[in-house]
């Protein structure tokens, strides 16, 4: 055996050893994620597939007719009631997510820049409302916004109105207020994390180059925290589109959202395929809206420079 052959033999042996090592690392990795993966597969992917399948079928009284049809989508997209509900849901979730970010950004900014040694304490304090159930928090808004509620009695006490107003509760705005309050804390965290990552020397550099505090915020801090802002927007927007509890409790007739219509199809309406089509449409629209928000914000960020 020549020296060269020996060397190549050694090299391939080495390669094989590396190969098994990699394979075992891969195997380890797969083993590690498989419980989560299976869980997600069974509880997330499978139901979604079931829903998508149903959306192409038809309800035939108590049974389901499994011939492929786009009829449900035609109904869902042409019936004005569903279009209105979807539009309102999108409007509410967009408004809520934007309001939430506007509320959360200053809080996150304050904690990150002025929290000093007590940053974790501040974050902890923010989570305190979550110790009570979401239902209780929604109900407490009823107490505030209701006919005999805190807001009405306060305004009457101040003499601003003569009799209780019914315009605070059971409408779109009540849903927006309640959802904004409920989600603000979730938006604080991603924004806080991105603010923490901003190198403070960059802000000194901006100041050194002539920027006052507002300019350096707009030119350095904000562009560098856009990823946090985007995640905050999405974290709030995506789940609120399909929110079901809040409109039920404080939305009244005016505050009905698409989730309620979907629920009706699956329960009282007993039209699963139509409910499924509505669900698929909602998911698609949310995805498209989320993607366009990311795109628009990225573009705007580039423009600021």
């Amino acid at each position: 055996m020549t020296a060269a052959a020996e060397r190549s033999g050694a090299a391939s042996a080495h390669r094989i050893r590396r190969g098994t090592l990699l394979r075992s690392e891969q195997a380890q990795g797969i083993a590690l994620i498989s419980p989560t993966f299976l869980y997600a597969l069974i509880l997330l992917v499978a139901p979604v597939l079931v829903v998508i399948a149903h959306s192409f079928w038809t309800q035939d009284f108590l049974t389901i007719d499994r011939t492929f049809t786009l009829e449900q989508y035609r109904i869902a997209l042409t019936e004005p009631i569903y279009r209105d509900l979807l539009a309102r849901s999108l409007y509410i979730s967009l408004t809520v997510s934007i309001l939430t970010v506007f509320l959360a950004y200053p809080i996150a900014y304050y904690i990150s820049f002025h929290g000093g040694a007590h940053k974790s304490l501040w974050l902890f304090v923010i989570t305190i409302p979550f110790w009570t159930s979401y239902l209780l928090r929604v109900m407490s808004w009823k107490v505030i916004l209701g006919y005999n509620g805190v807001l009405n009695s306060g305004l009457m006490g101040l003499g601003i109105i003569d009799e209780p107003s019914t315009s605070f509760l059971y409408n779109t705005n009540a849903v927006i207020i309640t959802l904004t309050h409920a989600w603000a804390a979730f938006a604080v965290l991603p924004i806080f994390v991105s603010l923490e990552k901003v190198d403070r020397t960059l802000l000194e550099a901006a100041k050194d180059l002539g920027d006052g505090p507002i300019r350096s915020f707009l030119r350095v801090t904000l562009p560098l925290t856009l990823p946090g802002v985007i995640s905050a927007l999405l974290i709030v927007m995506i789940p609120t589109v399909g929110d079901y509890v809040t409109p039920k409790l404080v939305g009244g007739k005016d505050g009905v959202m698409i989730a309620t219509a979907i629920e009706t199809q699956f329960k009282r309406g007993a039209n699963w395929p139509l409910g499924a089509a509505l669900s698929v449409i909602t998911m698609t629209v949310v995805t498209v809206m989320a993607a366009s928000i990311v795109f628009v914000i990225r573009q705007a960020g580039r423009r600021v420079r």
């Binding site: 190198d199 020397t201 550099a205 050194d208 180059l209 002539g210 562009p223």
Partner: peptide
Amino acid sequence: IPANRRPTNMVFQSYAIFPHLNVDQ
């Protein structure tokens, strides 16, 4: 007089190059 209104400029030890901007910017 704050730093942004002084006739001085600084080269920082860490350079503090703005990561979201290119060299020209």
